[in-house]
């Protein structure tokens, strides 16, 4: 099976979707002729023409707002916000409009859009190229929120997102674009060509939204993670030699509660890991759900390892980013509790 980087897999997902359905339209800043600052849309304009893939003015609200209008017309826009850190000007359009259009019009109008955006840190991106704003979207009724962690999933989930009848926020951990990353910034990065999840089938396939994947089966403790933190958690388990079960949530909303509950009831312990800041982060929702659904099976308090409650710093990158050492410590503490 061909191996692809995450960028190539994402590009392939758009290519396959545009080929199958001429209602799929791709645009955003630098997305057209240039092929995107991360090369995610390279070649699409040449292949499908400027009506299907084009450059947009630097206006996030304009990009998402026009996409909502296109979706109301009957097209399926898959638009890009250059960095998740720059989604805020479009927040009104996403929250007040895209998420509620079906509900408020009783299905008279719908909004099948995908908003792709590179997310996450670990790249010396500083304050405005590293944020993880997923909790700002999981709090919004009417949205679906996806964070893939590998090329195989990224393609299948993106095609599913484009085909989904509802608005989808598709957060792409840019740290994973070229290879998996376990937080060991001092070691050389392995490319996706050397990883089994870099195997990406040609043509059309989907991965259903709302389904988690168990990346590392275990019996001692459940780790709930997504995006880059999946690899950090796996590394932490190996390095501490703890039999942790690592669950890659893949879709945050709607959440695969069944898989989570089954795992925690089995292990009796749970650690939640994300890059985003701690307070009111998505981890709080996960802890709450685990507590509500697994209370009598829990042997220890549910722990959270997250970014500190500060803006994302530059020089202190590795003091901020929750690496394998911090996650490993939380695993040990949870086991000893």
């Amino acid at each position: 099976m061909p191996r692809r980087t995450m960028i190539e897999a994402i590009r392939d997902a758009m290519d396959v979707s545009m080929e199958r359905d001429n209602k799929v339209i791709v645009y955003g800043e630098d997305v057209g002729f240039f092929g995107g600052v991360f090369r995610a849309t390279q070649g699409l304009q040449a292949k499908y023409g400027k009506s299907r893939c084009f450059d947009a003015p630097i206006s996030e609200s304009g990009i998402v707002g026009s996409a909502i209008g296109m979706a109301a017309y009957g097209l399926k826009p898959c638009v890009e916000v250059q960095f998740a850190d720059y989604v805020y000007p479009a927040y009104d359009q996403i929250v007040s409009e895209a998420a509620r259009l079906r509900y408020r019009s009783n299905g008279d109008f719908t909004c099948p859009i995908v908003v792709r955006m590179p997310t996450g840190g670990g790249i010396f991106g500083g304050q405005t190229h590293s944020q993880s704003p997923e909790a700002l979207f999981t709090h919004v009724s009417g949205l679906k929120v996806i964070v893939p962690s590998n090329p195989h999933d990224a393609k299948g989930l993106l095609i599913a997102a484009i085909e989904d009848p509802d608005p989808v926020i598709f957060l792409e951990p840019k740290r994973l674009y070229n290879g998996p990353f376990d937080g060991h910034h001092d070691k050389p990065v392995t490319p996706w060509s050397k990883h089994e999840l870099g195997e990406v089938a040609d043509g059309h396939y989907t991965i259903p939204l709302g389904k988690a994947a168990i990346r590392r089966p275990g019996s001692a403790v459940t780790v709930l993670a997504y995006g880059t933190m999946v690899y950090v958690a796996q590394a932490a388990a190996e390095e501490t030699d703890i039999d942790a079960e690592v669950i890659d949530l893949r879709t945050l909303l709607p959440l695969d509660l069944e898989t989570i509950v089954a795992s925690v009831k089995k292990t009796g312990r749970c650690v939640v890991v994300h890059e985003a800041t701690l307070t009111s982060g998505f981890g709080a929702e996960l802890v709450s759900l685990v507590q509500e659904n697994c209370f009598y099976h829990l042997e220890a308090p549910v722990a959270r390892v997250a970014g500190w409650d500060t803006p994302y710093p530059h020089a202190q990158e590795w003091d901020y980013f929750p690496g394998p050492a911090r996650v490993g410590r939380a695993l040990l503490e949870t086991l000893e509790a």
Binding site: S66, G69, M70, Y73, G74, D92, Q93, E97, S105
Partner: peptide
């Protein structure tokens, strides 16, 4: 008659998007 929202001006850019879609199609 597109669904009215309480949030002001949001529909203005959506109208442009709808028109772009009509031209694309």
């Amino acid at each position: 008659f597109f669904s009215i929202s309480g949030n002001l001006a949001t529909q203005y850019i959506q109208a442009v998007g709808w028109a772009m879609a009509s031209a694309i199609s």
